[in-house]
């Protein structure tokens, strides 16, 4: 087994442990655990970064060197990395165990699915000609940072329906975090769509081909544009915003997974 697989295996285990620490925190309410959770998140992010870097280095050793963002497995582990990164970057706002706990659970799911599912090829594959472009880096990076920010928004949308003193943040805080995460995610998604369009212009000869993935990313963009207008212009609050963020994330999930599995199109590299 390659070194990077081992490191990423440890990272997956760490997400599990971090989630369990959250569970213990909910039961025992020891404030010291919160500090432990944040140290754990930083350490895991570091190791996760190392795992990605090792995989990158390994691809050069195999003489097919490319950034590890080229197939479904790599996108899954990169997505988990982005979720962790967003949580760490938004630390000041996300200092609630319910949010970090659910984020760890989602990262654990992504890592677990990447390493267990028989549908996922875990080998480093050479880059097909269409992906040999510098736009690959910036396109995938912006898209997945957006997807990760929308994970936070989704978690807030779900938490709106639960009340649990000391675990679930107060209503006002949830709304603020939800809005802030969309404020990060929406420009990133926009940048992701634009870099994709410019790339498509140079690779496929058209910046927009109504390919299912393109179309679904536009649908996702429209949902989050509606979210922002509903809040800023119409002043919506509470349950309606929570439902909008859940609809938005469903659209993200469909753009990411659904299109690959159900619809065929130009973006068929990922499976």
């Amino acid at each position: 087994m390659a070194f990077h697989h081992k490191i990423l295996g440890i990272v997956t285990l760490l997400y599990l442990i971090l989630f369990l620490i959250h569970v213990i925190y909910v039961a025992a309410r020891k404030e010291r655990l919160v500090a432990l959770i944040w140290i754990g998140l930083y350490v895991t992010l570091g190791l996760h970064t190392l795992g990605l870097a090792m995989r990158w280095a390994e691809s050069y050793r195999l003489d097919i060197g490319h950034v590890p963002l080229s197939n479904f497995y790599e996108s899954l582990i990169f997505y988990a990395w982005c979720v962790n990164l967003i949580v760490v970057l938004m630390k000041k706002r996300l200092a609630y165990p319910a949010i970090t706990g659910l984020a760890c659970l989602i990262a654990l799911f992504l890592m677990g699915y990447a390493s267990i599912s028989p549908a996922v090829d875990r080998n480093i594959q050479p880059l097909v000609p269409a992906l040999q472009s510098n736009w690959l880096h910036i396109h995938v990076l912006t898209c997945f940072i957006a997807y990760a920010a929308f994970v936070v928004s989704f978690v807030c949308g779900v938490l709106h329906f639960f009340e649990w003193k000391g675990v679930v943040p107060p209503e006002k805080a949830i709304e603020e975090i939800n809005y802030k995460s969309v404020v990060v995610g929406f420009p990133m998604l926009t940048a992701g769509i634009f870099t994709g369009a410019v790339w498509a212009h140079y690779a496929w000869g058209a910046y927009w081909s109504w390919d299912p993935k393109e179309t679904w990313s536009l649908i996702t963009w429209i949902v989050y544009a509606l979210f922002l207008h509903a809040r800023i212009v119409k002043g919506w609050k509470g349950t309606r915003m929570a439902i909008l963020s859940i609809i938005g994330f469903s659209s993200v999930i469909f753009t990411y997974f659904g299109v690959n599995f159900i619809l065929s199109g130009l973006h068929s590299y990922a499976t």
């Binding site: 299912p212 649908i219 429209i222 949902v223």
Partner: peptide
């Protein structure tokens, strides 16, 4: 925007 989104969904 909702109609455009629904139309786009139909197209996929």
């Amino acid at each position: 925007l909702s109609c455009i989104a629904i139309g786009s969904v139909l197209g996929t």
